[in-house]
C-alpha cells in the first residue's frame, strides 16, 4: 500500500512519519503525475490560502478532484476538501473558527467506536459550519463536528499527526483497505 502526502506546504513530514510507523509506504506529492498509482492521499495542515494557490498553479486541484482513491484532510486539508473549495466532501468549513493562535488548545475527543478518548490538538482550528445528510459525524467538541467521513473521504479539524496516537490514521488506512476491496 502506498499513500501520498501533499507536500506543497505544512505538516507533511509528520504525516509521512506517522504512516511509515504504521508500516505503509508514504511518498511526498508536489506535482500531478506523482498521484499516479497511489492508494490514498493525505492533505496535511498548513495555511489553506497558500496551499490552494500552489495547487492551482500546477493543476493539482483538478488532479485531486479526479483522484479515485481515499482522501484524508487534517485542519487546512479539511478546508481544502470542503464544498466551497475542491468540493470532495459535502460540508462547509469555517476557517480559524476557534480563534487566533492564543486560542489554540488541547482537548480529549470521544471518537465514535473508540473507547479511549483521543488527544485532540487544535491549532487555529476550523470547524464544520454545515454538513450534508451523507456525512457521518464521528466526533464533536462543544457541539462542533471535528471528525467526519463521507464515503472515501475522512476529515479532521485537529492534528493527529502531531501526537503519538495512531488511531485516526489507522481509521484512514482501514478506509483505504475497504476501497481496495471494492476496486479489485
Amino acid at each position: 500500500m502506498t499513500i501520498g502526502v501533499l507536500a506543497l506546504q505544512g505538516a507533511f513530514r509528520e504525516h509521512v512519519a506517522m504512516l511509515r510507523r504504521l508500516g505503509v509506504e508514504a511518498v511526498e506529492v508536489r506535482l500531478p503525475p506523482q498521484l499516479d498509482g497511489l492508494d490514498g492521499l493525505v492533505i496535511p495542515g498548513g495555511e489553506s490560502t497558500a496551499m490552494l494557490r500552489l495547487m492551482g498553479l500546477y493543476g493539482l486541484d483538478e488532479a485531486i478532484r479526479a483522484f479515485p482513491a481515499p482522501l484524508f484532510g487534517t485542519c487546512a486539508g479539511m478546508i481544502v476538501l470542503d464544498r466551497e473549495r475542491l468540493g470532495l466532501i459535502d460540508l462547509v468549513v469555517e476557517r480559524n473558527a476557534f480563534g487566533r493562535q492564543v486560542a489554540s488548545f488541547e482537548a480529549p475527543i470521544g471518537i465514535e467506536g473508540d473507547d479511549e478518548p483521543f488527544p485532540g490538538v487544535f491549532i487555529r482550528a476550523p470547524w464544520v459550519a454545515d454538513a450534508g445528510p451523507g456525512v457521518a459525524i464521528l466526533a464533536e467538541i462543544d457541539g462542533h463536528p471535528v471528525l467526519a467521513r463521507e464515503g472515501r473521504v475522512l476529515v479532521a479539524s485537529f492534528h493527529p499527526e502531531l501526537t503519538d496516537d495512531t488511531r485516526v490514521h489507522e481509521r484512514f488506512l482501514q478506509i483505504v483497505r475497504e476501497e481496495q476491496g471494492v476496486r479489485t
Binding site: 507536500a7 506543497l8 506546504q9 505544512g10 505538516a11 507533511f12 513530514r13 509528520e14 495542515g45 498548513g46 495555511e47 497558500a50 485542519c75 487546512a76 493562535q101 489554540s104 488548545f105 488541547e106 490538538v121 491549532i123 487555529r124 492534528h159 502531531l162
Partner: peptide
C-alpha cells in the same frame, strides 16, 4: 502545542 503552529508554517514563506 506552541511549536505546533510553526509546524503548519513549514515549507512556506
Amino acid at each position: 502545542m506552541k511549536s505546533g503552529l510553526a509546524e503548519m508554517l513549514k515549507g512556506g514563506v
